[in-house]
């Protein structure tokens, strides 16, 4: 079975559109952000679609109000704006309020990491993992291909609470055309390795798989895990998947050492008393204005294939045999 790669937002919004016909509880709110599929939603369901304009703070509060009245809400905007412009709205009206009221609000942020490649740091997003995982009750969902994004739709409607979906803005190659991961487990083991395991989220899963393939060509097998639910994964199963490794490597298209995937794994290793050393790889914390292909920008900040291979060389030598 093969399938054409597609944009995460397109397949996810198609799921929303399909479900809206039969499920009157679904409501879609956009902060003046569109897509061809959204045009169809607007046309088909004018009474359950609203564009709040370029007003992300109001996007969140309107969504909270709709959710308090029982709607399952999908709120849609560019990733840095739906997380950072309205952070306190997400904290107060979603994370905090959901402590005492059932709320199902799903924030769809498009443009994870460098995916708006030529738009520069305003439209790129390297802080969202850190920020959204800091909010209790939020689930943070970070798919690496459109199949995962598609399958997250049911997870969103079936689970109460606020969620943040960080979607890549680009069409990424298909990863899960053979087997779809279990959305409730929150991660997927692509490959088992000998001493080192790469744990990646979002776009960097593609990079991790390429790194693993290069190393395999040289006779070294490293494990690869896709962590697509950064908050509500099965901790016992993740521990079991990680415990045989002495070296773990976190790979994220977000600032390194600032509370993102790497912090989550540092905490996990400490809490579960794993005997592993973690090498955390991410974007060196700085705002940069260079233009170029995404892979090249990644090399500049330490998360390109070659940069990772270089980092792994020293890391491997530092590990106990």
């Amino acid at each position: 079975m093969t399938c054409q790669p597609r944009a995460m937002r397109d397949v996810f919004l198609e799921q929303v559109r399909k479900a809206m016909g039969g499920d009157q509880r679904l409501f879609f709110v956009s902060a003046d952000f569109g897509s061809p599929v959204l045009d169809k939603i607007r046309a088909d369901f004018p009474s359950r679609f609203v564009n709040v304009g370029i007003a992300e703070q109001n996007l969140i509060n309107i969504s909270a109000g709709l959710a308090l009245e029982g709607y399952i809400v999908f709120a849609y905007a560019i990733a840095p704006f739906i997380t950072m412009r309205c952070y306190e709205q997400a904290r107060v009206s979603l994370a905090l309020l959901s402590e005492v009221r059932p709320l199902n609000v799903n924030l769809i942020g498009v443009g994870a990491g460098y995916s708006y490649v030529v738009s520069g740091p305003t439209h790129q997003c390297y802080e969202d993992i850190t920020l959204m995982r800091a909010l209790p009750n939020f689930q943070l969902l970070s798919p690496a291909d459109h199949i995962t994004a598609e399958n997250l739709f049911n997870h969103c409607t079936e689970n109460q609470g606020p969620k943040y979906l960080r979607f890549d803005a680009q069409v990424l190659p298909v990863i899960y055309d053979q087997e779809v991961p279990d959305m409730e487990i929150g991660f997927y083991v692509h490959k088992k390795g000998d001493r080192i395991c790469l744990i990646a989220t979002g776009y960097l899963l593609h990079t991790a798989l390429e790194v693993a393939e290069r190393l395999s060509g040289g006779g070294e097998e490293v494990g690869v895990i896709d962590l697509f639910n950064l908050t509500n994964y099965s901790a016992d199963q993740l521990e079991a998947a990680l415990k045989s490794y002495t070296g773990l490597v976190s790979l994220e298209e977000g600032f390194r050492g600032r509370g993102g995937l790497d912090s989550m794994l540092f905490e996990f290793i400490a809490r579960r008393r794993l005997q592993a050393t973690l090498l955390n790889l991410g974007v060196e914390p700085a705002y940069r204005f260079e233009l170029g292909p995404r892979a090249e920008l990644h090399e500049q900040v330490g998360i390109g294939v070659q940069s990772i291979l270089n980092s792994l060389r020293g890391f491997r030598e530092s590990l106990p045999m």
């Binding site: 509060n61 309107i62 909270a64 109000g65 308090l68 009245e69 306190e88 107060v92 009206s93």
Partner: peptide, 29 residues
Amino acid sequence: PVIPGYETVNGSLGHGLGVAAGIALALKS
């Protein structure tokens, strides 16, 4: 909102009006 009779989180200012507008939209819908 742990107090019976209070609907939402309050006191952090500037949120209530937007949430109320969302509720008003939902009621109409």
